[in-house]
């Protein structure tokens, strides 16, 4: 077992261990906190696929997070109001089922990523960052000005969406569900990274000219990664809506896009468990320092500076050393 594998295992066990002790200590709030970390980790795992593997610094992933959130919010709000979503040409009813919310949000985000990618992936560097940001802002303002689903005030949900065989309103089952989804997503990304497509994607980041010489167009590879990345982040958004039982345009704000980038950098860009490490660290700082001062973001900034200056591989790089081949 390499050092990174051991570290990954420890990271994967840390959150459930924390939750188990919170459960024993009867501190449901701490379970919810851990759930929040896991959901942010899932969103950042999605981003890491584009940013870490593909070198695509998207500053617009909040849009996908929000699309996932609104998919849950809209479908659930129709279910709780007993109003159909649409009556003609055919009837669509709302639903509380997560197993419907997730694919709807993911497909919607995937379609949005296709459009955003078609325009942004032809550019690179600062232009790419700006175009993804611009699109996310468009979604943000659209959500604000859409009164049917709460507009600026957002959309409260009375219940948590349902999952077969589970009481999702209880903190522990909901955490378990979120955590299993997270681990599956990380495993999926690990499989992708080691696949043919993963090799091509890592290649598109490292030396696109070499990829071209191999007969592989970088655009298609990047686009595919961008779409999958958006879908994973949308899944996180959907769970986030259920966690808070509330959806609002702030899920799509550029602050969130930035936060996700920070998580990835803190944990280690392109490291499989980097987003999880980053999210746990971030939520821990938010909780501990946030209890002391309103300006807790200052400490995140300080830490980010330290990582960028002294530990380019983030937390994982610091603890497990240089990344293996890819």
């Amino acid at each position: 077992m390499t050092r990174e594998t051991a570290l990954n295992l420890a990271l994967a066990l840390a959150l459930p261990a924390f939750v188990a002790s919170a459960y024993v200590a009867e501190e449901p709030f701490l379970i919810t906190l851990a759930t929040r970390a896991a959901i942010l980790a899932l969103a950042a795992t999605g981003l890491n696929l584009a940013l870490g593997f593909g070198g695509l610094v998207s500053f617009g992933h909040a849009a996908f997070f929000g699309i996932g959130g609104y998919a849950t919010g809209i479908l659930a709000s129709h279910a709780q109001d007993y109003t159909p979503l649409m009556e003609s040409p055919f009837l669509i009813e709302g639903t509380q089922a997560m197993l419907i919310h997730w694919p709807v949000g993911m497909i919607a985000a995937g379609c949005a990523a296709l459009v955003i990618g078609a325009l942004s992936l032809r550019t690179s560097g600062v232009y790419f960052i700006m175009i993804t940001l611009a699109f996310a802002q468009m979604f943000y303002y659209f959500a604000i000005s859409w009164p049917a689903y709460g507009g600026e005030d957002g959309l409260p949900l009375y219940l948590r969406s349902s999952f077969p065989g589970m009481n999702t309103l209880q903190p522990l089952p909901f955490f378990t569900l979120v955590f299993v989804v997270l681990i599956l997503a990380i495993g999926f990304c690990g499989m992708l990274s080691a696949s043919r497509f993963g090799l091509a994607l890592h290649g598109a980041r490292q030396t696109p000219a070499r990829l071209v010489a191999a007969g592989i167009g970088p655009f298609g590879v990047r686009m595919t990664a961008f779409v999958i990345s958006a879908m994973l982040t949308a899944l996180a958004g959907s769970l986030f809506a259920d966690l808070n039982r509330f959806v609002s345009p702030s899920m799509m704000s550029w602050h969130l896009s930035g936060e996700l980038i920070v998580l990835v950098i803190l944990g280690g860009v392109g490291r499989l468990f980097g987003p999880l490490a980053g999210a746990m660290l971030y939520v821990a700082i938010e909780h501990v320092a946030g209890g002391l001062t309103d300006h807790w973001q200052f400490f995140v900034g300080l830490l980010l500076l330290a990582v960028v200056l002294f530990a380019r591989g983030g937390l994982i790089g610091l603890l497990a050393g240089e990344r293996g081949h890819v």
């Binding site: 043919r196 993963g198 030396t207």
Partner: peptide, 29 residues
Amino acid sequence: LMPEMSALQNVVLAAMVKEGGPYRFFRPV
């Protein structure tokens, strides 16, 4: 070349197009 890849990975990448293309997501390359 791809600096972070092994020599073999670099060459595998070049062989892909002839052997079914890069859009395969499951099997380890």
